[in-house]
């Protein structure tokens, strides 16, 4: 469970997040939508402290993570992160990408890590790409590999930062399918996305962000079917 209380983030004079308070429950799939520059990605990146919040508190399973003396590496193992640009390690094979962190950060024996790595590759449909370097994978395959890599740490929560934005249109579907499977298995997921159809289908709840605040939130039916806020209406009229 993630609890965020009055979270703000400033880059110099720029106020990117202006007080976010939100709770994401276990097994919940939450999609964050909103215009570019609304702070969606920053909000997501604050949750695993890739950005340091300016003020406010973030709790993961009741433990505050943005204070001194917190072992951030331990917290991050509970949080899987998937990036827009994949950020696969280009000098390692697909399987090594998946096993490096379990082996090095979690001290899991290599054979064991490789066995669960192979299972994860199977799950994302890349079993025949284990020995291949990321350079020769397609965009969709890269992102599926990146999802498998994040899952290898057995996270409780998965964070997705615009996972399909860098993909060619024909590859979006395969990545969304993997994410859907994950959602059906009960994974807690926070997804920053521009895929409104996906959000509508998969999300338990949709957050609409604008200018560093959560302007409106509700079920997909509420947000897409009957938005209340003017800014939500305005945004949806442009993207739907």
């Amino acid at each position: 469970m993630i609890e965020v209380n009055n979270l703000t983030k400033e880059f110099g004079k720029l106020k990117v997040l202006r007080g976010i308070t939100e709770t994401i429950r276990e097994n919940e799939v939450v999609c964050v939508i909103g215009p570019s520059g609304s702070g969606k990605s920053t909000f997501l990146r604050c949750i695993n402290l890739l950005e340091t919040p300016t003020s406010g508190e973030i709790y993961i399973d009741g433990e505050q993570i943005n204070k001194k003396d917190v072992d951030i590496n331990k917290i991050r193992k509970k949080l899987g992160m998937v990036f827009q640009n994949f950020n696969l390690f280009p000098h390692m094979t697909t399987l090594e990408n998946i096993t490096i962190s379990p082996i090095r950060a979690n001290k899991i024996p290599k054979a064991e890590a490789e066995k669960s790595g192979a299972e994860l590759l199977q799950m994302v449909g890349l079993q025949d790409k284990a020995g291949v370097f990321p350079g020769s994978l397609s965009g969709g395959q890269k992102q599926r590999a990146a999802i498998a890599r994040a899952l290898a740490m057995k996270p409780e929560i998965m964070l997705f930062d615009e996972p399909t934005s860098a993909l060619d249109p024909e590859m979006v579907g395969e990545v969304l399918q993997v994410m859907k499977d994950l959602a059906h298995r009960g994974m807690t997921m926070v997804i920053v996305t521009h895929e409104m159809g996906f959000a509508r289908e998969v999300a338990d709840r949709v957050l609409f962000m604008d200018e560093g605040m959560i302007v409106e939130q509700g079920t997909p039916e509420e947000i897409f079917g009957n938005p209340q806020n003017e800014r939500t209406k305005n945004f949806l009229s442009k993207v739907l």
Partner: peptide, 21 residues
């Protein structure tokens, strides 16, 4: 920069991320 972020988000500490990634 994304390489360091990816490594850290996977729970590696700074030294591990430098050394392996």
């Amino acid at each position: 920069k994304g390489q360091m972020e990816a490594a850290r988000s996977l729970g590696m500490n700074h030294i591990q991320a430098m050394r392996f990634i």
